[in-house]
């Protein structure tokens, strides 16, 4: 293809999963204890999508990557310090809730509006990337809703691989049941790709990329529009923490054989 892709990645922050996360009920609804204090990371699903987007942009000349990110502005700012050194992108920031309890419909509406408002966007070159489980409590619906709102019919969910051909057509591997892949071929953009984990490692921190990105990041944060996500319209009848299934016992002086026997017994049960 001659002009390259315009790749818009939807991705925002989640509490660092390495932290101790404790669900609580807040006046605003369900939340996490000390949520404002918890360090954040880029949602790992979206992170894969971002790295894949950057990789694709490198392969296809003339391509460009945007990162559309919905979250509290101050937290987005901090997140950018860890993300912006990884790959080049232009940030479009939306100031709103990034809570895991925010509804997928509201998030998708805000993201689609922001994508639609990107100046100079050419839909015939548009690929919308995101995490397949992002902002949807693992229901894989948010990216599909974004696609619907943008009028994009070709949608792929649980993507692990994309191969672009010279004419702009591409083949996609989507995860399906039983460890199998569904292989599809698409004639070209526009399309929505909701990524699973992809195959790329996390890029190293590159200070030059960071410096380049930051020229656009701070202005983008300064003009971040408020997104009325999760504000009214939703009542949580009930929230429940999944039952903990981990069973921990402290055992001293048990032989390897005894431990192995017990594990086998436990598996049999």
């Amino acid at each position: 293809m001659t002009n390259g892709f315009q790749i818009v990645v939807c991705g925002s922050l989640v509490p660092d999963p390495l932290q101790t996360l404790e669900p609580v009920t807040t006046p605003q609804g369900p939340g996490l204890k000390n949520e404002t204090m918890l360090p954040s990371v880029l949602d790992p699903w979206s992170a894969h999508a971002l790295f894949e987007a950057a990789h694709l942009a490198k392969q296809v000349a003339g391509s460009k990557v945007w990162l559309v990110s919905l979250g509290p502005k101050a937290k987005l700012q901090q997140l950018m310090m860890t993300v912006a050194q990884k790959v080049p992108f232009e940030l479009v920031a939306l100031d709103g809730s990034a809570s895991g309890f925010t509804d997928a419909h509201g998030v998708a509406a805000a993201l689609a509006d922001a994508i639609g408002a990107i100046p100079g966007l050419d839909k015939s070159r548009l690929l919308v990337f995101g995490g397949c489980a992002s902002a949807s409590r693992d229901a894989s619906v948010t990216m599909q809703l974004v696609g619907e709102r943008l009028g994009i019919c070709d949608q792929f969910v649980g993507v692990d691989e994309i191969h672009v051909q010279a004419d702009g057509a591409f083949s996609v591997l989507e995860r399906i049941e039983g460890g199998e892949y569904l292989a599809s071929t698409c004639a070209g953009a526009p399309a929505v790709l909701a990524w699973a984990t992809g195959n790329l490692p996390e890029p190293p921190n590159n200070p030059q990329i960071g410096m380049g990105n930051m020229r656009g990041v701070m202005p983008a944060l300064q003009k971040a529009k408020p997104a009325a996500v999760g504000v009214g319209g939703i009542a949580y009848a009930k929230t429940e923490i999944p039952a903990q299934k981990r069973q921990t016992r402290i055992v001293k002086d048990a032989s390897t054989d005894e431990i192995a026997r017990e594990i086998v017994e436990w598996i049999r049960q």
């Binding site: 204090m37 101050a74 901090q78 310090m81 960071g210 410096m211 930051m214 701070m218």
Partner: peptide
């Protein structure tokens, strides 16, 4: 830790300094 997170946010919000963790 909480104090430095707060200070860092103030600084980065100024747009006048780039703080790069993980480096």
């Amino acid at each position: 830790g909480a104090f430095m997170s707060w200070v860092g946010n103030q600084l980065m919000g100024s747009g006048l300094v780039q703080i790069w963790p993980g480096t």
